[in-house]
């Protein structure tokens, strides 16, 4: 398929106000049609005969919609959708509620076009700022949170603060996993915690390429500033944690020892 045909058809579609299903239908048919015509003539002549993409689009619009009311209705819908996406807020609030909060609340605005921040509050909340049991947003707050920046019991984000568990580029939590991880238990490129496991690990128990702490399993320096942690057995990890914290829950021990060989 030639790119000039694709470009022409794309230009036609740009000028048609119709739903996606109809546009797909037109796209497939128009591409097949032009290709067929080109098999029997010169491509430039064919496209010239068909006319400017705007004219072809107008002809389609004239025939897709049998009366003026249909066209007006479609244009109003497109305009409203465009407004919502470009400037205004998109908001959906489910009628079903739990503890006075909607089951699902979506409130999003496109701040790039001057919209206000959409703050969503619900059991499931999706927004520029979201607060919910399950919370998805640029800034997400709540129980289980996903976002650019998030704070919750369990949190997954670029910058992630999790009271129980934090996963992210920067993760801070009781248990943190991330590029930079800070927590009681921390696993990461750089890990800081009571029990830390990582490229660089600092903690009471530290296991890593370079480990700094009271109870450590440390790698070797292969060249200046470069450390490698060789194979560490599960039993070694378990014994070093048990030495530091004799009464620690066994699931925490198991979690870290799972990183060993």
């Amino acid at each position: 398929m030639r790119s000039s045909i694709n470009t022409y058809v794309a230009a036609v579609l740009e000028n048609i106000a119709a739903d996606e299903g109809m546009k797909k239908r037109i796209e497939k048919d128009l591409i097949a049609h032009i290709n067929e015509a080109c098999a029997q003539g010169d491509e430039a002549d064919i496209l010239d005969r068909m006319g400017a993409p705007e004219e072809v689009a107008r002809e389609f619009m004239d025939n897709i919609y049998e009366n003026k009311e249909d066209v007006i209705e479609k244009l109003v819908q497109e305009r409203a959708l465009n407004d919502r996406l470009m400037r205004g807020l998109y908001e959906y609030k489910s009628k079903a509620a739990l503890f006075g909060l909607p089951l699902l609340h979506i409130k999003v605005s496109n701040r790039y076009y001057g919209g206000r921040m959409g703050v969503a509050k619900g059991i499931i909340a999706i927004g520029n700022i979201s607060m919910g049991v399950l919370s998805l947003g640029g800034i997400a707050l709540g129980g289980i949170c996903f976002g650019g920046v998030s704070l919750g019991l369990v949190s997954l984000a670029g910058i992630s603060l999790g009271l129980l568990l934090a996963l992210g580029g920067v993760a801070v939590g009781s248990f943190a996993v991330g590029g930079l991880a800070v927590g009681f238990g921390a696993i990461g490129g750089a890990a800081f915690g009571k029990i830390a496991y990582g490229g660089f690990a600092k903690g009471v128990v530290a296991i890593g390429g370079k480990a700094v702490g009271k109870y450590i399993i440390s790698g070797t320096e292969i060249s200046t500033g470069q450390y490698v942690l060789g194979e560490v057995r599960k039993e070694e990890i378990e014994s070093v944690i048990r030495a530091a914290y004799p009464n620690i829950s066994s699931w925490i021990v198991k979690l870290f020892s799972a990183l060993g060989a």
């Binding site: 037109i26 048919d29 128009l30 097949a32 049609h33 067929e36 015509a37 068909m50 006319g51 072809v56 689009a57 107008r58 002809e59 389609f60 619009m61 004239d62 025939n63 897709i64």
Partner: peptide
């Protein structure tokens, strides 16, 4: 197929029904 329909209508109607793509496909 679509292209044939346009050609055939044009030919058999001796040019009275020169149909454009934007007319045929919605029909």
């Amino acid at each position: 197929y679509g292209y044939q329909i346009i050609q055939l209508l044009d030919e058999k109607s001796e040019g009275t029904f020169k149909m454009k793509e934007g007319t045929l496909y919605p029909i």
